[in-house]
Amino acid sequence: MKNKPLSDLMVVHPFFEGMDRDHVDFIAGCAQNKRYKAGEFMMLMGKEADEFYLIRSGRVAVEMDAGNRTYVVQTVGEGGIIGWSWLNPPLSVRYDVRVMDDVSVFAFNAQCVRDKCDADPDFGFNITRRFMKLVVERLMATRLQLAELYA
């Protein structure tokens, strides 16, 4: 039996909603399937931001190590996106990402995606806009947390 191309699997992820198939096929060249076990770290603060992830299943915690205490900033599950530090210099990871429940992800090589964004500005704009949406959502969530939503 022939395996499905990765882009066929990828299109169901919410990140690709409404994206032209050409662009999905284009970015799929930078992607691979990966799995991580509960307790493993997918990303570590300070390391090079050389990958980003689209979660297919499972759940991760975005954490901030404050020396004597570790804060969970957010948990992200199926359909979520992890990593935006790969887009702009200094290209270094800003949080730790710990796997809570075994995860399966599409992992994207950041250099490869950056090169494709530079090579095809239309594609680059499409990707940037989708990450912009994510950043705005996270900013909004942070503001709500600061506003003491339940006080």
Binding site: A61, R69, T70, V72, V73, A141
Partner: peptide
């Protein structure tokens, strides 16, 4: 909205 690692549930608004 916030938790430390001992919390196994969701964190986020």
């Amino acid at each position: 909205d916030r938790a430390d690692r001992s919390w196994r549930g969701h964190v986020g608004v």
